[in-house]
Design a protein around this nucleic acid. Structure first.
Lengths: 141, 141
DNA sequence: CTATATTGATTGCGATCTCAAGTATAGCTC
DNA sequence: GAGCTATACTTGAGATCGCAATCAATATAG
């Protein structure tokens, strides 16, 4: 129960702040961060989907938005014509570097401030035990 | 990060199991449980909405579904003509008593099994510290 | 080398949920 | 008791997301 409630309240607040200031959804941000820390700032769309726990169709639509905002671009794969890469554009890099600080501050305020450093570690460890279903653990959280 | 991922994976799996066996969403179940433990198995719709962190319109639509399935009924309030109560029907009580065991077993398997009793308490305590925004704490988790 | 299965990606459809607007009732102030 | 504000609820419009179907390209089997 607490888990569900905490998630609902937290994500709603975080997402609405992020949207108000940077016009990004929490998920948009999540996707941009994945790309930001990826090798060459690009990922196969399917891997991106798995790393943020979206379906393939979900990532297509989310990236549609980020592409039309110019934050992400497409790129063909030489060795496998099925795959397309999502690549962070210059504007995308800029965007995330702008948004990062305020978002981290929001997280700190709403989440981190409730816990001591030790408690954070413990919480992270406990949550990390939960099964992430069928997904590859591409998460660099 | 872990919090978001854990939530996404967990709720997806729990909800899909619940739907497969009992034709209930995780949220449906949540609402039914709130009613089940409420005084007279009825609640004002607005209080119900707040207790499960939905908006007023969200609860209207969710209850539409539960009403047409015959699990929940409407009832007028004598003292205030604005309010409507959501009341668990006989079928609703039966439904939740049927679904409860398998759902708790699912939770146990996917969530509880990862933790010792002490760790559960600690996790509950830590999560309980998170601010639930503007909501009244009607949660009897 | 051909048939079949698998994988990456997109699209139509339906479900869920929020926001904004609208209606009706209640309470408060003068 | 007239007017103003707040509350409970509903509805229309729009966003997001999953599922199933589909297509194209690749991998595997015989």
């Amino acid at each position: 129960m607490r888990f569900l409630r905490a998630h609902a309240a937290l994500t709603r607040e975080l997402s609405s702040r992020l949207e108000a200031v940077h016009e990004l959804t929490l998920r948009d941000f999540d996707v941009l961060v994945q790309l930001y820390y990826a090798e060459g700032r690009r990922m196969r769309r399917i891997d991106l989907a798995r790393s943020v726990l979206l379906t393939a169709s979900g990532i297509t639509r989310l990236l549609d938005g980020l592409e039309s905002s110019g934050l992400v671009g497409k790129e063909r794969c030489e060795s496998d014509a099925r795959v397309t890469y999502a690549v962070l554009t210059k504007a995308g890099v800029k965007k995330i570097e702008e948004a990062r600080d305020s978002h981290l501050a929001d997280i700190e305020e709403l989440f981190g401030a409730q816990f001591s450093p030790q408690e954070r570690d413990q919480l992270a460890e406990l949550l990390g035990r939960l099964p992430l279903a069928h997904t590859s653990e591409a998460c660099s959280g």
